[in-house]
Design a protein around this nucleic acid. Structure first.
Lengths: 213, 213
DNA sequence: CGTTGGTTCGAACGCTCGATCGGCCCAACC
DNA sequence: GGTTGGGCCGATCGAGCGTTCGAACCAACG
């Protein structure tokens, strides 16, 4: 039970990380409930029971994948936000961070967006908190942007936030990395599409473009 | 095997429809693979084996839910499109149709957007075709709108289509009908958000509003 | 009344799953 | 060189799953 908290050696951590990566692939491919620990065992070259040395249940495995992804996205965003005070630039950073992370960790991010409801109890609550923190941070960015453009739209901020996340997360349903638009362009497209609409006639996207390095 | 094609009595069809509704609720609640036929049996008040008189497998059940929802959305849209020649009005009709149908059939629509990958083989192909038809129709509406506004954006239409569907589908992750904004307002918000961004500085959303009855 | 055919059911089959348990291996340390 | 303990495994358990099968029910019809 306390197994996975005891050893903190880098070797142990590395192998856990590898297992999480393989598991994320399987979960993304087949969905959480259709994926089996036995297949993880096969693909990772570890015996079925040997896996349980690294995590204590299938659900904890799912939790760790989601928690680590979310943490990395959040930390990355907070780090990038320190570099810009300008509202439009900050939103652009947020979109670039999210879309970029999605493109580089597609499996884990698919699991993150699709398998929230597969969690239960304490695990679900922890992930919900992180998601809420992320979502609130995003809403604040939109509030800043709205204030800076001086527009007093009636569009509720939570609707705008939902719409923005929807845009960013849905884009990958038909996205193959490499075969499609490069990530930078995609982020920029979404940024312009959203800001052009969000700040509307008050300030079209074209004029925002120049402000950011 | 050919069971479910033989009887076409209205009574039979009604009961099947009721089973599909209950099943959609369970699928939406727990996800396809975590939902069990036994629970459907319990909730519907029908014996486990009795269910198989109405469908031949769990996957066919999932297929029927998705197929019927998609058909109704598509038919509803085509019907409404006949009433408007004006590009912005047609897009507004599309968004209103989609969002409205989502609000009234939340369970089935959640299944439709979340459980596509749970299908396999022929079932998956049939649903993919329908989704493609819907998506293409939407892309055409955007092409019309872009042409009518005279803008020559570089934003790829397939990206715009994905973003639009993302907005519409994601909005319901945090939506409780009744406790939140009425559907009409929500549709209008999304329409303005999207068109304001999509047709950008060329034609802000506010000026589009008046054109439609 | 007997037969049909749509409808329903209880019981069971075969299978896969997540999880557990006792023990083996082997490097590190006394 | 004996002991410890992290790492790993084969064998197996109990549970739940989707599905099937043969029989029973019952209104309609001859």
């Amino acid at each position: 039970m306390a197994k996975n908290t005891l050893p903190a050696t880098s070797e142990h951590e590395e192998k856990l990380e590898r297992l999480l990566a393989v598991a994320a692939e399987i979960f993304a491919e087949k969905g959480y409930h259709h994926a089996s620990i036995r297949e993880l065992s096969r693909r990772a070259g570890v015996s079925l029971s040997g896996l349980y040395y690294y995590f204590s249940s299938k659900e904890e495995l799912l939790f760790m994948i989601q928690e680590r992804s979310l943490r990395r996205v959040l930390d990355g965003l907070k780090h990038k936000l320190k570099r810009s005070d300008e509202p439009a630039g900050r939103l652009r950073a947020m979109i670039g961070n999210h879309v970029g992370f999605f493109a580089q960790n597609m499996a884990a991010m698919k699991v993150l967006t699709h398998e929230f409801d597969s969690l239960e109890g304490k695990y679900k609550a922890r992930i919900r908190d992180l998601r809420l923190e992320y979502s609130n941070l995003c809403t604040e960015l939109l509030r800043e942007l709205r204030r800076s453009t001086g527009s007093d739209e009636v569009l509720p901020l939570n609707v705008a936030t939902s719409a923005l996340f929807g845009m960013m997360n849905w884009i990958y349903t038909g996205y193959q990395p490499g075969s499609s638009i490069p990530v930078d362009r995609l982020s920029e497209h979404l940024f312009r599409l959203f800001t052009g609409g969000f700040s509307s006639s008050a300030e079209p996207a074209a004029s925002l473009e120049r402000r950011v390095g």
